[in-house]
Design a protein around this nucleic acid. Structure first.
Lengths: 120, 120
DNA sequence: GCCATATTGAACACATCGGTTAATCAGCGA
DNA sequence: TCGCTGATTAACCGATGTGTTCAATATGGC
């Protein structure tokens, strides 16, 4: 994906526990690459790549301070992800989550007989 | 990743426009595989595999009705994703560069998400 | 200029992803 | 039973992801 759509890039960036942990750490404040790498048992280049993934997803910006490259969380793209997810909030808020409703198997959810569901 | 953590699986499943489109279609009601495949210019097996990815992420359940396998959106895992993202909402809502007073509130993120974020 | 530290790049290995086509399984109906 | 339709599996391919190690680059201090 040379330059796939932003949402896919953001979701893909979040689909890794190491990167999510990095974001969590970054939520506490700026950090350098070595600081971010410390909790993990992987090489520095590996962390550097994770940071690049986050950077490409616009979840991270970096400065330059001497030979350090302080990383900072840029949470704006997460809003896009949340926005997409919010579109489906109605599903789990209204209890369509298969919590013991095996009975209505042939019942079409969308069969709006009297509920008028389309107004989101 | 034979059975990686759920959040990663969910985010990875969402990191594909085809799969997101499938979920969007499914939000309108149950659909069979061929119905889901129709809007896309790809083979049926390809769609079948996308469905399997969604199924493994618990975003989809399937029934059996004659030779059809009706697919149904299972939105509960999306709530987990939203929950994770919500921890960072303060960042994009306030748009601050440095952080100070929010740290105490964000501190609990580590406690809550420690079960799925960093390991290995 | 030279060295130390921080970070990145290059080359490599290996697994997974996302697509294809062809073959196969599963259920319905004559 | 046979044949049709819906859907999955198998085998294969190229591209990408994630890790490694070793080398290169960038910056500051001597």
């Amino acid at each position: 994906m040379a330059e796939a759509d932003r949402l896919s890039t953001v979701f893909a960036a979040l689909a890794d526990p190491t990167r999510r942990a990095i974001l969590a750490r970054l939520a506490e404040g700026e950090a350098t690459v070595t600081e971010l790498a410390e909790p993990f048992s992987m090489s520095l280049p590996a962390v550097s790549r994770h940071l690049k993934v986050l950077e490409r997803a616009r979840l991270l910006t970096r400065g330059r301070s001497a030979q350090w490259r302080p990383c900072r969380l840029e949470a704006a793209p997460l809003a896009d992800a949340t926005e997409w997810l919010d579109h489906y909030r109605a599903f789990w808020e209204r209890g369509f989550d298969r919590l013991g409703e095996h009975l209505t198997q042939l019942q079409k959810i969308r069969n709006d007989s009297g509920k008028d569901t389309d107004h989101d």
